[in-house]
Design a protein around this nucleic acid. Sequence first.
DNA 1: TTGATTGCAAACGGTTTGCATGGGA
DNA 2: TCCCATGCAAACCGTTTGCAATCAA
Lengths: 133, 133
Amino acid sequence: MAAERGLKMTPQRRAIIRFLESTNAHPTPDEVFAAVNVDFPMTSRATVYNTIAWLKEAGMLRELFTPDGVRLDPNFGEHHHFVCRVCNRIEDVGFDLVPNLGICALPNQNSIEEFEITIRGVCANCRAQLSIT
Amino acid sequence: MAAERGLKMTPQRRAIIRFLESTNAHPTPDEVFAAVNVDFPMTSRATVYNTIAWLKEAGMLRELFTPDGVRLDPNFGEHHHFVCRVCNRIEDVGFDLVPNLGICALPNQNSIEEFEITIRGVCANCRAQLSIT
DNA sequence: TTGATTGCAAACGGTTTGCATGGGA
DNA sequence: TCCCATGCAAACCGTTTGCAATCAA
């Protein structure tokens, strides 16, 4: 497993990683806390935050900053995001679905290293709901 | 002025709007609080937050969610952002500089209404600093 | 064994809220 | 005049910190 880089493993960390690997959603730290405590009771919030920081440092986790606070993004591969304006759910969007931006240079000589696209709209689920109503 | 939509104007609101119109940076609410209190002392934090909410509702202000918390984006026109990974400064990037994404449809029937691009890299200033060192 | 990790509870900082006062329309 | 906006201070809530006990290596 990717975390085995000579770093100390604990049952709590294992449980947190297991949960993050199992989801394709974008949980809040508190949702991680709640989920992990279902099958591994007695994991403190502090440990959840510690582990998040540790995983971020190891490059195994990204954070998304949203109007409702931080959300975790355990998806390894490069990807963008779709945000539904109805249910606020975040979906990953494959990097390849978006044509590579033609930007090679900005007018002010800023160097471009990477870019991230957030697409907003209404997800398929919510569209279905809306058309029924 | 754009805020005159039959909404009540107060000296505090005027001062806050004046400051926001004068900057092309992306201040935090607290920076607005500090700046406004220079020329208009006795504007409370609550009023700053109230006014921000009011301006957001009126569509005159966007919020950006960053690792260092909320930043305000008073720029009216559609635009994207460049974030310098060295100084963390945010620069606006003209909408027209980025070729319109060729995305017409996502594979899952999500409807696309808008998109926002965050470009990361090193800004011209910081590049200059770095090459000196 | 030993230093890193843990749980707990307190501290922290940005934001929101409740309420009495004040001021714009 | 009549609400709406204001200032103040307390409440709130997600996150961080300090510390003693525990545990992985």
